[in-house]
């Protein structure tokens, strides 16, 4: 890689490299990893805990860079992603690859040194899963890409938990299941209202391969399957009254939203500019945030009583 072979429109700034790490995805990773670490029964020194969360986030960012390196051709076609550093020509693809590989290594090694090998191993697996299994393979080959890709996003609380305890147990698996089952309805709601993009890029999104009616049904099915996980988490050792209340209320709203999406047809959705789909998508973000927030609240209450 040299400037002789790659002539960007303008010099890449530091912010363009930060954008390569998908900072918005990272913020969710930071939050869920932090919660996984916080609710674990073993307390880490605050500095070690903060470092662990940082390196988990760095690993997630590195896999984001690898994703942007490999997906530059798709990203260039879709409106939502065309401005990303690689397709917009600000960062050379080889540079994105080098940063992705380099930061992955640093993140895994540093997490191992800061905490333990189980957490580091899980982080390495997550990066591999997202960059290779999801990005290189499943995303382009199956409409279930979102379901399986969701696993990568579901790992951070498990890594946080492992960083504190040195292992994985039921509570960590339930936190994993919550994000894993939440991802498909969350993403498909988005896919419904930014429809044309995935068609153009040739990504086998469910809306393209099975049609929008089927996508609506899938959203409802996955939301129904998601519903018991929150209450189960609330009844597990990391849960408590706040989580239980949150799980019941959030699931009721999400199920109602998924039901509304399922009941509508395209004509209705197009007349009101996909209002329900957009509302459910926005709510789904709160759903996950508040669920994990409730776990923190219950943990704080345990300290009080």
């Amino acid at each position: 890689m040299s400037d002789a072979t790659f002539t960007p429109d303008r010099e890449a700034e530091f912010g363009d490299y930060v954008a390569l790490l998908k900072p918005r995805v990272m913020s969710l990773v930071v939050f869920t990893a932090f919660v996984g670490l916080l609710v674990a029964p073993v307390a880490l020194h605050p500095f070690v805990a903060a470092s662990a969360v940082l390196f988990i986030a760095l690993g997630a960012g590195a896999s984001g860079a690898l994703n942007m390196w490999y997906d530059a051709d798709i990203d260039a076609v879709m409106r939502r992603t065309a401005k990303r550093p690689v397709p917009s020509g600000k960062v050379a693809p080889e540079e994105a690859l080098a940063i992705g590989v380099g930061l992955s290594g640093i993140a895994v090694v540093m997490l191992a040194l800061a905490t333990n090998l189980v957490a580091a191993g899980l982080l390495a697996f997550t990066i591999f899963f997202y960059a290779v299994i999801y990005t290189m393979w499943l995303k382009r080959s199956t409409p279930q890409n979102i379901v399986i890709g969701g696993a990568a996003g579901a790992f951070p609380p498990v890594i946080g938990w492992a960083a504190a305890t040195g292992g994985v147990s039921l509570e960590a698996v339930l936190m994993f299941a919550l994000i894993f089952m939440w991802t498909p309805p969350h993403f498909w709601a988005l896919a419904l209202f930014i429809k044309s993009d995935y068609d153009d890029a040739g990504v086998p999104m469910l809306t393209v391969t099975h049609g929008r009616k089927s996508t609506r049904r899938h959203i409802l099915i996955y939301t129904v399957l998601l519903a018991p996980i929150g209450p189960a988490l609330a009844l597990s050792p990391v849960g408590g009254p706040v989580t239980l209340a949150a799980a019941l209320v959030l699931n009721a709203i999400f199920l109602k939203g998924a039901f509304d999406i399922w009941r509508r047809d395209e004509g209705e959705a197009e007349t009101d500019g996909y209002r329900t789909e957009k509302r459910v998508f926005r709510f789904s973000l709160y759903y996950l945030f508040l669920h994990f927030g409730a776990l923190v609240a219950d943990r704080a209450l345990q300290g009080v009583f």
């Binding site: 010099e11 890449a12 700034e13 530091f14 912010g15 490299y17 930060v18």
Partner: peptide, 10 residues
Amino acid sequence: ERRLSRNRGV
């Protein structure tokens, strides 16, 4: 000058 932002960040 062009690389100032990058160098500072790094």
